[in-house]
Nucleic acid binder design. Structure first.
Length: 552
DNA sequence: AATTATTCCAACCGCTTCCAG
DNA sequence: ACTGGAAGCGGTTGGAATAAT
């Protein structure tokens, strides 16, 4: 069951202890490795007999000097193991069972403060062990990651956000405008993973006193876990984007915009301000009313560029710099696969619904060597290859003007949209209200009205319900055609269509069709096959890119 | 009912830190 | 200042339980 290390740092049994009744219950461990002539220390699950011995010993001698336990009790356990057993299971006042909502909140808050300092966190949670907390957190991360949801609840992030804002207070921080700062002014997804989400306003009003929360710290640390490998982070980012778009959090729209916009240091400042501040203002102003849909930060930069706490080296661009255009240009093989329209205006940089700039890591990454889970990457590359080969489906290009890069396009398909759908099913009515509320936010105003530059941001507002045929974020086709091949009527803004009637699916479909320049719905359907969404269950059924009609 | 996937969590492992000599 | 042992910490593993198919 459990591994038996050949060379343990635990002490080995003393020969005279070999006959101990607790030496081996045959249930586990106790493998063959020997060091010298001594038998191996027992490993694996503790028996009640062992527990009793250990408890008895500690009662008599107190904690500490764990190596002496073995010597004095005949327990075939190394000191480490004894300490761990005592600390995690035997010591008094241990609280068993699931974490209470209060504890969960505290953990989140503490993690925001401390990162993966489990022991320190445990000190704040009486009766809880670091191991418990760690396991809980890892599970949470895993869950959130899978669902493409944020690790930190809105409230926690908002706290830090406001603090960061105080620090910078201006997006015009030039080169010093750290990702943190940007993120700090960014938006946060609500904690959809929390059972309290929506249902429990208390959670939303929960505002931990995070004195030194840096967004990058928050996200970086959380995502630095091995449970969130780098590429997973990238996926996460993309998924987050999509989720944020599909879910009421509109939010990531802005986030995606921000992260992209940030690349345009010169042209985008105004836009950023317009986008962010307007949005934030609105979000903040309405946060009470729409708290669940509060601004969201997917951690674009923070999370990509944050202070990762993981000690282990992470392959790939862990310390991802801003995916600047320069980088992209200089490296046509940039990992930047997220669709960026040609001759792009800042505002049309990215369709946060379809493409996440957030997941634009180091330019050193290579598109040609997918490091993702494989399936998605393979699909994408195949699609890219096909597309570049046929050159018919235009529009999607890397931010660099260099055509034909192998990383031109990216279709981010979330395997987690079933969850989103579920959420949507539950909350669509409220979202629709909010959608209507948001439909005219500053983006619309700041977005150039041009047939060549449709306000793709607005796409993000399209919910599955609003655009049933679109699925929820599975949209893999490029959002629009390039200028030359644009079928968009001049001065027609799909977002106008969308925002004008957020609750009308047909309107959204029309808008999407306009954006895509063709019958998206049909494509979606053909691609989708039997399902509405490319949910996790549907993902495996997805046709290969070569089988997709749009790539033929 | 069988199989597969997912989640949970106890325990291990290696590294770091602390501290006494 | 250096060294070595003990303790602590965070990351990781893998089996059991549970859920989903």
């Amino acid at each position: 069951m459990y591994r038996v290390k050949s060379e343990s740092d635990c002490d080995m049994l003393l020969p005279e202890q070999m006959d101990s009744p607790v030496a081996d219950d045959g249930s586990s461990g106790g493998g063959s490795p020997h060091r010298g002539s001594g038998p191996p220390l027992k490993k694996g699950p503790w028996t009640s007999a062992e527990d009793a011995i250990l408890v008895d010993y500690v009662k008599k001698h107190g904690e500490g000097n764990w190596n002496a336990v073995q010597k004095n009790t005949g327990l075939f356990r190394c000191g480490k193991s004894c300490r761990l057993r005592w600390a995690n299971h035997l010591r008094p006042n241990l609280k068993k069972g699931a974490f209470t909502p209060e504890e969960e909140r505290l953990i989140i808050q503490l993690h925001a403060k401390m990162g993966n300092k489990w022991a320190r966190m445990a000190a704040h949670l009486p009766g809880r062990t670091d191991n418990e907390i760690k396991n809980y957190w890892n599970t949470r991360i895993k869950r959130c990651q899978r669902a493409g949801l944020p690790i930190y609840p809105t409230s926690v992030c908002n706290q830090s956000s406001s603090e960061d804002q105080q620090v910078c207070g201006d997006f015009n921080c030039g080169e010093n405008m750290s990702n943190d700062l940007l993120s700090g002014n960014s938006i946060y997804l609500p904690d959809f993973t929390s059972d309290n989400f929506v249902a429990n306003p208390e959670v939303l009003s929960y505002t931990p006193q995070l004195s030194a929360v840096s967004i990058s710290n928050l996200l970086g640390q959380s995502f630095a876990s091995k449970n969130c490998k780098f590429m997973d982070q990238v996926d996460q980012a993309g998924i987050l984007k999509q989720s944020g778009c599909v879910l009421p959090a509109l939010s990531d729209t802005i986030d995606g915009v921000l992260s992209s916009v940030d690349q345009f240091s010169n042209d985008s400042e105004k836009l950023k301000q317009a986008l962010v501040f307007d949005y934030l203002n609105e979000a903040n102003a309405s946060s009470k009313g729409i708290a669940p849909f509060g601004v969201a930060l997917s951690g674009s930069h923070a999370f990509l560029n944050g202070n990762f706490s993981a000690s282990r080296p992470i392959n790939g661009p862990l310390k991802m710099e801003l995916p600047s255009l320069q980088d992209t240009e200089s490296d046509p093989n940039s990992w930047l696969k997220y669709t960026v329209a040609p001759a792009m205006q800042p505002t049309e940089l990215v369709d946060p619904y379809l493409h996440s700039p957030v997941a634009t890591p180091s330019p050193k990454s290579e598109c040609a060597s997918p490091r993702n889970s494989g399936l998605l990457e393979e699909l994408l590359h195949e699609a890219q290859a096909l597309r570049s080969g046929k050159n018919h489906l235009p529009s999607v290009r890397s931010s660099s003007s260099s055509a034909g890069t192998p990383c031109e396009t990216t279709t981010v398909v979330s395997p987690e949209f079933d969850l989103c759908h579920e959420y949507w099913d539950e909350h669509q009515s409220s979202f629709l209200n909010e959608c209507a509320h948001f439909s005219g936010y500053s983006l619309t105003e700041s977005t150039p009205i041009s047939g060549a530059s449709p306000d793709i941001f607005q796409l993000s507002k399209i919910s599955p319900a609003q655009s049933p045929s679109m699925g929820s974020g599975e949209q893999a086709v490029e959002p629009k055609q390039d200028t030359a091949g644009s079928s968009l009527p001049e001065n027609v803004r799909p977002d106008a269509l969308i925002s004008g009637n957020t609750a009308d699916p047909s309107t959204f479909n029309n808008a999407i069709a306009i954006l895509l320049g063709n019958d998206t719905n049909a494509k979606c359907k053909s691609v989708r096959g039997d399902g509405i969404a490319f949910g996790s269950s549907s993902w495996s059924n997805m046709p290969r890119a070569s089988e997709m009609s749009e790539f033929k």
